[in-house]
C-alpha cells in the first residue's frame, strides 16, 4: 500500500506564509464565525474563507471527494434539518413571528396527538444562514491537508506554545507513517498468502470486527516492538534533558505579522460586536418576506 500525503509544494502566497501565522488566522476566524447567526456578518467571513481557499490554488480533481462530502453534509444534514425543524440555532426562528409557506396537520393514530410540521420563510432564511456559516468554517480548513507540510507540524506547534515533548511526538508521528504503511502492506500480503480474505469477511458485524484481528494485531505489536528500540536509542542520547533545536527553523516575516495582526483584529472586533454591542443575532431580511409574497 502506498501512502502519499495530499500535500505538495504549489508556490502560492498561502504556502509562503509562516505556518504558525496560518494557524492563528484559521483559529481566529473560526472563533469569530461561531459568534454570529446574522447572514450579513457571515457573508463577510464567507468571502474571506473562499478567498483563502482560492489563493491555495487547489484543483477540482484533488478536492472532488471532500467537496462531495462537505456539500452532502451541509445541504442534506444541516440545510434540510434547519428547514424542517428550525432548531439548533437562535430561538428567534421558532419563537418569533412565523410566515408559513406550507403546513400539514397529522393526527397520530391511537394517541390522538396532533403534529403540524411546517416550513416558514424564517426557517428557509435560517437554513441558508446555517449553510453559509458551516461552509465558511469548513472551507477554511479544507486546504490544510493539501498545503501544510507534514514535516512542519512539530516545529509549528512548538512555536505555538506546545511543550517540546508533545511537539517531538507530533513530528515523529508524521515520520512513522511511511514505515508503518509498508509494514501494514507486508502483513496484509502475508495474511493473504495464508488464505485470509479481508475483502470477504463473513458473518455479522461483531464477527467481522473479530476477524480484523489477524491484520490489526501483528501490525500493532510489531510497531510496539520496534518502538521499544527507538525509546532505548533516544534514552541513550539523553532525550529530554535539554531544550530541543529543530531542523526546520521558522521565522516570522513582515507579511506574517500583518496576517497575525489582522487575525487578532477580526477576532477582537467580532467579540466586541457580539458581546459588547449585542450584534450578530439571527437576522430576518424584509426582502425575503416580500419575495414570498408577505
Amino acid at each position: 500500500m502506498l501512502v502519499a500525503w495530499k500535500y505538495k509544494e504549489r508556490n502560492t502566497i498561502i504556502q509562503r506564509l509562516d505556518p504558525r501565522a496560518r494557524w492563528i488566522f484559521l483559529l481566529s476566524l473560526t472563533f469569530s464565525i461561531v459568534q454570529f447567526w446574522d447572514i450579513r456578518f457571515l457573508l463577510f467571513f464567507f468571502v474571506i474563507s473562499f478567498g483563502h481557499y482560492f489563493l491555495c490554488r487547489l484543483t477540482w480533481k484533488e478536492t472532488r471527494r471532500i467537496w462531495t462530502f462537505v456539500l452532502t453534509l451541509v445541504v442534506v444534514i444541516i440545510g434540510i434539518n434547519a428547514v424542517l425543524t428550525g432548531r439548533g440555532g437562535p430561538g428567534e426562528v421558532l419563537k418569533g413571528p412565523k410566515h408559513i409557506l406550507w403546513q400539514v396537520e397529522w393526527v397520530v393514530p391511537w394517541v390522538g396527538w396532533t403534529i403540524s410540521p411546517n416550513i416558514t420563510v424564517e426557517k428557509i432564511v435560517f437554513a441558508i444562514t446555517q449553510m453559509v456559516r458551516m461552509l465558511s468554517i469548513t472551507v477554511l480548513f479544507i486546504p490544510l491537508a493539501y498545503t501544510f507540510n507534514p514535516n512542519q507540524y512539530g516545529v509549528t506547534f512548538r512555536g505555538l506554545g506546545l511543550p517540546d515533548k508533545v511537539a517531538v511526538s507530533m513530528d515523529l508521528a508524521f515520520r512513522f507513517v511511511p514505515t508503518l504503511a509498508r509494514d501494514f502492506s507486508i502483513t496484509l500480503d502475508s495474511q493473504r498468502a495464508r488464505g485470509y480474505e479481508v475483502e470477504r469477511l463473513e458473518g455479522g458485524l461483531i464477527a467481522q470486527i473479530r476477524k480484523m484481528a489477524p491484520l490489526v494485531v501483528p501490525v500493532t505489536i510489531n510497531a510496539i516492538v520496534g518502538g521499544e528500540d527507538i525509546v532505548n536509542a533516544m534514552d541513550l542520547r539523553c532525550f529530554g534533558l535539554r531544550k530541543r533545536t529543530w531542523i526546520h527553523k521558522l521565522e516570522y516575516r513582515p507579511r506574517d505579522y500583518v496576517l497575525i495582526g489582522l487575525s487578532v483584529l477580526i477576532l477582537a472586533g467580532s467579540t466586541f460586536a457580539n458581546l459588547g454591542l449585542g450584534l450578530g443575532n439571527f437576522w430576518m431580511p424584509g426582502w425575503a418576506l416580500r419575495l414570498f409574497g408577505f
Partner: peptide
C-alpha cells in the same frame, strides 16, 4: 521518552490503519 515515542507510534498507526 517512552510516552513521546508511543504517542507518535499510536498516532501514525491510527492514521495509517484508518486510511488503509
Amino acid at each position: 521518552t517512552r510516552e513521546v515515542v508511543f504517542a507518535a507510534l499510536g498516532a501514525a498507526l491510527y492514521g495509517v490503519l484508518s486510511f488503509a
